[in-house]
Every structure is written in C-alpha cells, then in structure tokens.
Write a protein that binds this DNA or RNA. Structure first.
Lengths: 337, 337
DNA sequence: TTGAAAGCGCTAACAT
DNA sequence: ATGTTAGCGCTTTCAA
C-alpha cells in the first residue's frame, strides 16, 4: 500500500522504512547500519548510509527509546537558569555529555519542588538519566525517582543517591577564620530557600565554625537567592547591627551590596559581606565580592559521569564526591568596624 | 503471559496496560482518561485515575509521540547559556510554554552552527517545535528544518521563517545620536561572531547612522562575545585611537572595561564604551555600562507563541515581530576626550 | 550477512 | 461509554 499519510501537521519525516525501500534492503539492515555497523557487510553499509544521507534520514529518538529504553539523552534540572553559578555546572555537564555522545537538555525548575517533580516525571521516560542541581525534592520523592532513572545530585546529598557536593565544612570554616582574623566577633547569615540542602549545610557549617571560634552567629531569612532578594536581606542585616554578613549565594550578596550602597552603608567600612559561589560578576561588582569558590565545572563533569556509570552498571554503591572549596578574598571584607 | 521482563536496566515503569489491568478496563479507556476525560464516564474516570495515581503511572511521552506526533515539548537553543542576555529570553519562553501546558527544554549550541544543526536534527522528532535564539544556521539549513518542525527565531531573520527581532535600526541610531551629542566624531565597533545575524544588523545600523551623522565608524573583530573576548578587543580599540567603542554585546563590553581599567585607560574619561543587551551585571559593573536594552522576556514569550501558532494553524504567513529597543545611559559614556 | 516478524507503550479509528 | 484492533518507527530475537 502506498504511503498516503496526509502529512499530520508535518510534511513527512524520512523513516527507516523509506531508507530501506530506497536501498532495497530490510529495515533491520538499515537499523543495524546505525546501531551495529560491524554486523553489516561493508558494501551494504556504505550503500545504505549513502542513501540515508541523501534522503536526510535521522533516527527518531522516541521510537528508538520505545524499544531499547535508551535515548542517548540526559536531562539536567537547575533551580534558576539565570543564576550564573549554574552556568559552570552546565558547561561541565555539557562537556562530559558530549564527550560520551549524549545530548544534554536543560530545564529550569524555578526554585520550585513541585515543578521539579513534574519535570522529573515528565522527562523521565524520555531520557537516560538526570543531573539534579541543588534539588529541592523531598528525600522520598527523590528515592522513588531513582528507581526509574539513574540520578546524580549536585550540592545535595541524600543517602542512596549519587552526589557531588562542595566541601562546605571546610568552606564555612575558611569564611569564619577569615572574618575572625579581621576582628569580627559576630556574623549574620542571610539564608536562602528553606528547602535548599546547600543552604542548610552552609548555615550548619557557619554556626559550628563560629561556635568553635567563640563568635556569635545568627540566621536571618529566608530570602530569595537572587539580586532581588537583596533589599530585604540588607535591611534586616542593618537592623541586626552585625559587622559581618554572609549571604546564601553571590546573587543575594550582590543584591545586598547594592542595597547597602543605596543606604549609605560602607562596605567593608561599616560591614563586611561574604558570598558563596564565585560567580561571574562577583569579581566585577563594586566592591568586588569576597566569596567561597566551588569547582563548578568539575561538579558538572563528575555528575554526568556518575549518571552514565549508573546507567551502565546497575549500581553498587552510589558514589559521594566531595569537591574542595576555596575562599576568594576581594574587597567586600575588611577589618571589623 | 506474565510480565516477565527482567528489568532492562530500569526496575519497571508502570504502563497503561498495568493500569488497565488493575482497573479492569481496556487500555483505550485509560488512555482516554488522560487525553479526552470528557469521553469517559465520570465514575470510570475517577476509578482509573485513582488507580493510576496509586500505581504512580506517568504516560510515556516517547510512545505517545510515536503515534500522535505531538510531544507537548518545545526546545529552545541558545548559543551560550552563560550569557545572561539569554536568561531573559529563556524566562519569557518558559513562562509562555508553561502557560500553554508545554514543557520547555534548553540546549546550548556553544556558538557553533554545526552543533546547532546536530541538535535540531537530533531533537527534531522529539519536540513539537523550536525557538532558535540568535541562530547561526545558514539560511538553507534553516529553511529545510522548517519543513519538519515549526520554528521561531529570536534576533535572526530569514524570509519565510517566523521571527521576533529587536529594533536595531532605531537602537543603533539612538547610540550614535547619544555619542554625537557627547562630541564624539568617530567610533569603532567591536564585532562578534561572523555568523551572528544581530551582529551584522548592529554594524549595518551603526554604520548607516554614523554616515548620516557625518561621523566615522570602523569595525574591528570578530571577537568572542564573552568577557574573555575583552582583552583582544580592548587592545585593538586602544590602538585605533577612537574615542568611542561600541561592543557587540555587554559581555564583551564588560571584558573591554576590565582590560581598559587594567591598562589605565579611563572610562569615560579617555574613551566611552557602549554595549548591547542590558544584561544583569551591566548595571553593577564599574563603571556601570551604557547599553541598548531589548525586551528580552517579551521576545521569549512571543517566540513561543509563534511556534505554537504555527503548529496549530499550518501556517499562512510566518509573522515578523519587531520589538522596540531603548538606550540605557549609565556611567561608561561621557564627553569626547 | 541478511530478512521476517514480534513487539516497545500509546493513540485513534472503528465496533459494539 | 467502552472495547478491539491496527499501527507509529524502531530494535531485536530468530531463521534463513
């Protein structure tokens, strides 16, 4: 029967059957040319491939996925694409994915656990695995998702799930020691989203390090981890009369810096400000921000590798990787007022 | 026969058949509950949906796409996720997509036409349409891709393809008038990638406006449209002895600013610098950047709407939308030296 | 080395 | 309102 499909919206994609017909072979042979080139006669393969190219054939990943379960696609979810912190992780993930011949797609969860969950369910059957960056998912949801897809977390740890996290224990200690060495005796932490695992780690680390150093530490917030979160955080911080402010991340810190400038509070003259992430922009804002740097690209690479590893070896122990952090001292921190 | 599939890598995803069996109805009934709820008895639907929820059933988009051709997914390709300019477009696209019940996935083309082409082929069968932002694709490739998928371009125009572009004619005129009013008599344009359509429009507009105003305009480059492109561009610009520099985009402009500062060239004392995009960061770099603002979120929204429109009404005339631009004057431009 | 044929999970006629 | 039955495009045994 002739191919009489009246173009269901689309002019007509070239299929395996088209190529097979044009080449005078069976569809299975064409399929093999793509999936197991070595199991096909050289001459046949040349011929088929030539015809396929001529016709502009591209395998339909959906159909392929249906049978084989593999899609050669990885999905990475981030809370906020506009936060440059994630650009580093993305770049690393992109590099590792393409090195492995996989396509990486991204989606923005809008700092929202419900959106994140929907995306995981929605994209799950269409991808070979997930990199979840700064995931807001509750543990149980996460664990359930792991049954269906290989998953690696970035800056979030949950027992039983592969993850790569920054060494916040060391990082927060570096921050506190830096501030103490400048004579600060109390600090306030301007917190991010309540569901943020790294936010919790940051605060816990700060509090412990402060206790060990005998300085006071209090937490304010939560604030939106964006520049727009700055004004509220800065105003609260000023009221607290602390001499050192540590913000949940650089976006918030930059927002704080701007608000302080607008209010005539000198940085680091009146207060010192420290951020997390060392994003692009933390170096050229004014004053340049003292911040804790993570190995973001590396984190992206390792996370993708972890996903790939899991999808190949239906896993032993999901690995936990801790990446070092490093305090970058710039202009926003100085001696206590 | 029992379902004896030994977990092909994945524990076992709940399928329509599982739900149907558990609910004691036909698969088509379950399917209808999701696709045409109104064509199913209320009681049956309640029952089926309850069971589906209990089993944790989620439709497999791949399988659905295979038959229906629709995937409820849109892909957006950007040259560089790390460029905050695209964050605005992405946010807008995200909003419009989710308002339409579509999932938006993103991919980074690394400023590379070959990568972009591969992604379009690869993702094509798996999505309902594309938003191509600042596409580097040659016209013929683009036109061919349009046969297979609805496409809307952002800041790129090709006859026969829907697009939303910024009003660079007006924008470049605003820039030139601003510089002329400050006494500048010559300017140099620090160009971006050769394949960039908006780059070409920017230079053409600048050149025409300069000619009309009787001032000199020359083009340098191409430079990488990133902060890293700054040093080379700044050095060349200094050599040119022009009093006004207009950079391809804000990322490059910020890189230029930093290099000029490092070399002891005063901005705007010695030279004025103007960028394009009004990205986050152009406001808090030092000096704050004078730049041409676009309606980025709006562009994202409109582009998604254009794609959706095309996929519904197998199209009349693909629309061209021109969005206004506006010069934001900050500290980096001043009177000619 | 190649072909025939049976699905993968779902949708959409067509029957009932 | 619901069930039956073909496929969608591809991969993958199993035979030849």
């Amino acid at each position: 029967m002739a191919r009489a499909r009246p173009a269901r919206g689309v002019p007509h994609r070239v299929t395996l059957a088209d190529v097979a017909a044009a080449a005078g072979v069976a569809t299975s042979t064409v399929s093999r040319c793509f999936t197991r080139p070595d199991r096909v006669n050289d001459a046949t393969r040349e011929h088929v491939l030539a015809i396929a190219a001529e016709l502009g054939y591209a395998p339909n990943p959906a159909a392929r996925a249906l049978e084989s379960g593999r899609t050669e696609t990885l999905a990475m979810l981030v809370p906020d694409i506009a936060n440059p912190y994630f650009s580093g992780v993305i770049k690393g993930a992109e590099r590792a994915a393409s090195a492995a011949g996989m396509t990486l797609v991204l989606a923005d969860t809008a700092e929202n656990a419900a959106v994140e969950e929907r995306l995981v369910r929605r994209l799950g059957p269409a991808v070979d695995g997930f990199v979840l960056s700064a995931s807001r998912l509750p543990d149980d949801v996460l664990l359930r998702a792991c049954e269906l897809n290989p998953i690696a977390l970035v800056n979030r740890a949950t027992p039983g799930v592969a993850c790569v996290v920054a060494d916040f224990d060391s990082g927060t200690r570096q921050i506190v020691e830096h501030l103490v060495s400048l004579g600060h005796r109390s600090l306030v932490y301007l917190g991010g989203p309540a569901e943020s695992w790294s936010g919790a780690r940051r605060w816990a680390g700060l509090r412990d390090a402060a206790a060990d150093a005998g300085v006071e530490a209090t937490r304010l917030g939560p604030y939106s981890p964006t520049i727009d979160g700055g004004p509220a955080a800065a105003d609260a911080a000023v009221t607290s009369r602390a001499t050192a402010l540590v913000a949940h991340n650089d976006m918030l810190a930059i927002g704080v810096l701007r608000r302080l400038a607008a209010r005539g509070v000198a940085v680091p003259g009146d207060v010192s400000v420290v951020g997390f992430d060392n994003i692009v922009g933390s170096d050229f804002c004014s004053p340049a921000l003292t911040t804790l740097a993570e190995r973001t690209e590396d984190a992206g690479v390792r996370a993708v590798e972890a996903v790939l590893h899991q999808s190949r070896h239906r896993s032993s122990q999901p690995p936990t990787l801790v990446l070092p952090t490093q305090l970058v001292v710039r202009e926003s921190s100085g001696t206590a007022a």
